[in-house]
C-alpha cells in the first residue's frame, strides 16, 4: 500500500499545474487513494467499535430500542461515578496545569542537554504512567512507604492523619498529578517557547515593569494555549483507567472503573447494555471538552 500511495503522489507532483480542468476533477478521486489505508485502519479499528457501542447502548437484550440504560446514568452509582470522575479530572487538571506551566516557564530558559533531558523525562512520565506508576506510588506513599516515613519522622507530618490514603480518591489524585503535570509540560511548552525575547526587551525599553510585561503581554498571549491545554488535561484525567484500576481494585466510584467491572462480567442480564451507555456518556463528555478545545483554538487562531 505504501507503493501505490507514493507513486500517485509523485505522478501528481510532476503533473502539477499543467492539467486541464477535467483531469483535475479526476485527480480528486485519486488523491483520496493516498490516505485510504490510513482511513481504512482508523475506520475499522476505531470508528466501527465505537459505532457498535452506540448501537448496543440503545438496544436491550431483546434487540428492542430503549433509552433505559441512559436514564440509569442519572441516578445511583452511575451518577456518583460521573461526579467522582469529574472531580478527579478537574482537580488533577487544576493542580497539574499550574505545576506544568511553572515548569515550562523555567525549562525554556535552560539550554542544550538539560532541556532535552527534562522534556524527554516528561514524555516518558506521561506515556509510561499506568501500572508501574501506580505501584511505585503505593510503595512510596503507602503506610510503610519511605516517603510517608520520612515525612513523619523528619518533618513530623503524618500524611495519614487526615483524609489521605494512597488507596482512596486523594491517593489517586496524587498519582494523576504525576503524569498530568508532565503532560502539561509537553503540550504547553511550544506556546511558552514562542514567547520572543524581543517582547520582553521591548517592554523594558518602553518603560514597562516585569509585572506590566506579565499582565499585558505574557498572560494574554499564553491564555488560549493554557486553556486548551487544560481541556486536554481534563479529558486525559477523565478517561484514564489503568492507574485507578491498579490502585483501587475498582472500589472508588469512577466511570472507567465501572465500565471495567461491567465488562468483566459483574453484571446482571438485564443490564447488558449499561456498560455501553456509560461508555457513550464518557465519550459525550470528552467530545464536549474537545469541542471547547477546538473552539478556543479557532478563536485564538483568528486573532
Amino acid at each position: 500500500m505504501s507503493q501505490t500511495s507514493l507513486q500517485s503522489t509523485l505522478s501528481h507532483q510532476t503533473a502539477e499545474g499543467a492539467l486541464p480542468v477535467a483531469k483535475r476533477m479526476f485527480r480528486l478521486d485519486k488523491s483520496f487513494l493516498g490516505i485510504l489505508p490510513f482511513l481504512a485502519l482508523i475506520g475499522y479499528f476505531f470508528f466501527y467499535p465505537l459505532a457498535v457501542v452506540f448501537n448496543e447502548s440503545i438496544h436491550d437484550s431483546h434487540h428492542h430500542l430503549t433509552a433505559s440504560a441512559y436514564k440509569a446514568l442519572f441516578g445511583g452509582d452511575y451518577r456518583n461515578a460521573f461526579i467522582g470522575s469529574f472531580e478527579l479530572a478537574a482537580y488533577s487538571m487544576a493542580i497539574s496545569a499550574i505545576i506544568g506551566a511553572l515548569i515550562c516557564w523555567a525549562v525554556v530558559k535552560t539550554q542544550g542537554h538539560a532541556r532535552k533531558l527534562i522534556i524527554a523525562a516528561a514524555g516518558v512520565l506521561t506515556s509510561t504512567g499506568g501500572i508501574p506508576l501506580a505501584f511505585s506510588f503505593i510503595a512510596a506513599f503507602g503506610q510503610e512507604g519511605l516517603v510517608t516515613k520520612i515525612l513523619l519522622n523528619v518533618f513530623h507530618w503524618d500524611i495519614y492523619g487526615g483524609a489521605f490514603d494512597i488507596y482512596n480518591f486523594w491517593g489517586i489524585l496524587l498519582v494523576y498529578c504525576f503524569f498530568q503535570a508532565p503532560l502539561m509540560v509537553i503540550i504547553f511548552i511550544p506556546a511558552v517557547e514562542n514567547l520572543k525575547v524581543e517582547w520582553q526587551e521591548a517592554n523594558e525599553t518602553l518603560g514597562g515593569s516585569r509585572i506590566a510585561y506579565l499582565r499585558f503581554v505574557v498572560i494574554p498571549v499564553l491564555a488560549p494555549a493554557f486553556i486548551s491545554s487544560c481541556l486536554l488535561l481534563f479529558a486525559s484525567g477523565f478517561s484514564a483507567y489503568a492507574t485507578a484500576a491498579a490502585m483501587s481494585n475498582g472500589t472508588i466510584p469512577l466511570v472507567p472503573l465501572l465500565i471495567g467491572n461491567l465488562v468483566n462480567g459483574e453484571v446482571l442480564a438485564d443490564q447488558a447494555n449499561q456498560g455501553d451507555a456509560l461508555a457513550m456518556g464518557m465519550i459525550l463528555v470528552c467530545v464536549l471538552v474537545f469541542g471547547l478545545y477546538a473552539l478556543v483554538m479557532r478563536v485564538s487562531r483568528k486573532k
Binding site: E201, A202, F216, V221
Partner: peptide, 11 residues
C-alpha cells in the same frame, strides 16, 4: 529601540 524582527506584541 527598534529590534531586528518579531518585536511587536502579537496580542
Amino acid at each position: 529601540m527598534v529590534f531586528q524582527a518579531y518585536s511587536l506584541f502579537p496580542n
